[in-house]
Write a protein that binds this DNA or RNA. Structure first.
Lengths: 351, 351
DNA sequence: CTGTTAGCGCGTTCAC
DNA sequence: GTGAACGCGCTAACAG
């Protein structure tokens, strides 16, 4: 018995030829009804549609792609998903993809360059038409334009180490700089910077803005990189404050750092902004309800995801792979609440 | 000129037969080298591997799937992604999927039943081997076991309207009940419940726990469903407090509701817990840094996602589609901080 | 051990 | 308007 005898299968998804047989037409007619590729008489169309209904048939998208059509899917690689920032990015990407009728294959790199390339590879093997990615630590990301063949790639939030990849960023440096200038306007002369690691592009860019503002004002730097846990942050802050010349203000470089610093401040019994003024980078939903409400640099998270994804679809549509990637930088806002020393009852957004 | 002349293409991904030609072997040999399906001499293997290297060949996963293999991908449908709760769920699912060597196709339903079925359909057309889903509002979700054919489906966080679908939930009712009992122990007699909508399964389940605790204590209910914006929440709370007999404690039924209530409380100038005690359902990272730190019912979010996904892989592995879905309920914890009136300096976790 | 053949479900090409 | 044949990249089944 040859494999022709497909009825032997206990269960099998109906195929186009099943529909054709039931409707007593050729497979091509079914295809035409499905895609509206050519004219079909109303009578036959009705027969086909009824057969489709009866069999609960739905076309095998994979076969279609396989046949050489577009896969209507893009890949998205993020470091993590439990971070609100990244999740919001994902939301934006998925939303734009849906607007274009595309599906998203989403994976996380866990900030591991190996995982990152492996996942990218897996996506390409699945014939995604493009990839949007937040690269792992800039230095170590091994993503290269060349390994993507003609498949477009757009990096966002952090640049890729490969300059020929399109990139969408926000004004990390300028934002941090303006925030520090604001703290200086409040009269602070000893301003500390706390972050996770300088090897993260965004953190480093923000640090450079901080440094620049201090230099312009002739002030000294005081930075700590290692806010990766409650205890390390607490110890660092404790050491800073015990120092003969403790900071009177702190700029935290990410929501995570902000959280750890907030915890440490509470633990040390410090008062914000009386004992220590505080400003963070990256706004978050509950920033208004911390004690006191937090002043932050707000980045256009959704916007960044949207712009990156639209850029990708642009590349896909034009089938072009640029020699030198474009670089788009989105503006940030300063949200003044109370932790910096301002007295605003409701947040004031600048620019 | 027939389509045989493939060299006419400006660019084309190398295929297995390209490799075979270069290595001067049959395609099957290449396949065998790739999959280790059968023995190949070291010599030929080396030749093949060199050809693969040279061509930078990587197998077309879609063709493989198409050929009747497993797709090694599962679908994940969530209401949204910008909600931390859902993002955390997604993270858990993706992590487990990766452990199994599977990719995840992720989409959002935006709580719209139509979108939900459309996305499910699209996933099936893409040959996912299973689907994990947080169904839209229980009443309206149109997901039915039957429309998935033999593809397993697991619902979590909320049950599906189709009882034959496996479901993983948390103790919503019991958790809320215990939380209210705790508020009662603090001496509160007028406890309000604030939530988004009773048509959401989780919110309703929590409300039932609240109601039960009050009934057991012989107290009256006071609930508001409509915390879907800052203003509606503020107006509702304002009305409650102006009432002759205002509540002395509130249980909010989700992080979102908590946020709105927190904002309203600040706006009305109320003091927590002196004027009004507060407890929330669902813990969040900054709960410790609100003023005062928030007492909450903590649900095992990651755990729920993991359990659901493992259950799915279990079904996939066994190729079974149960007649009646199993129902797994995960325990919750009570995290006592200060907003309920407790004086704990650090959180106390119960059970 | 290795190569050849025959489809998987669909759409393109070309006859009818 | 409609249908038959062919092949997309890959692998199971069968030769050699």
């Amino acid at each position: 018995m040859k494999s022709r005898d497909r009825s032997a299968n206990v269960y099998r998804k109906p195929t186009m030829s099943d529909v054709a047989r039931l409707a007593e037409v050729g497979v091509m007619t079914v295809s035409r009804v499905l895609n509206g590729t050519a004219k079909v008489t109303d009578a036959t169309r009705a027969r086909v549609e009824r057969a489709i209904e009866q069999l609960n048939y739905s076309p095998n998208e994979l076969a279609r792609v396989f046949r050489g059509q577009r896969s209507h899917s893009i890949g998205l690689i993020l470091p993590y998903l439990y971070d609100t920032f990244f999740a919001t990015c994902a939301h934006a990407v998925i939303t734009v993809a849906r607007e274009h009728g595309y599906s998203v294959i989403l994976t996380t790199s866990n900030e591991d360059p190996e995982t990152e390339v492996a996942e990218a590879r897996s996506m390409l093997q699945r014939c995604v038409e493009g990839v949007v990615v937040i690269p792992t630590y800039a230095r170590s990301s091994r993503l290269a334009r060349t390994s993507f063949g003609r498949t477009p790639v757009v990096a966002f939030d952090r640049p890729s180490s490969d300059a020929s990849i399109d990139t969408v960023l926000v004004q990390n440096t300028a934002g941090a700089r303006r925030m520090v200038e604001h703290l200086i306007e409040h009269g602070h002369k000893r301003i500390a910077f706390m972050g996770i690691s300088r090897s993260l592009f965004t953190i480093n860019a923000r640090f450079l803005g901080y440094r620049r503002a201090l230099q312009d004002a002739g002030l000294d730097e005081n930075s700590f990189f290692g806010c990766d846990s409650d205890t390390s942050t607490r110890e660092a802050l404790d050491a800073m404050m015990r120092n003969g010349n403790p900071p009177t203000a702190i700029l935290t470089s990410s929501t995570l750092a902000t959280r750890y610093v907030l915890g440490s401040i509470a633990h040390l019994g410090l008062h914000v902004p009386a004992d220590l003024a505080l400003a963070g980078f990256d706004d978050f939903e509950l920033a208004e309800f911390t004690a006191p409400p937090l002043t932050v640099v707000r980045q256009p998270v959704q916007e960044m995801g949207r712009v990156a994804t639209n850029l990708l679809f642009d590349r896909i549509a034009r089938g072009e792979t640029p020699q030198s990637g474009s670089r788009i930088v989105l503006p940030v806002e300063i949200v003044l609440r109370r932790s910096c020393g301002c007295k605003h009852r409701t947040p004031v957004v600048m620019q």
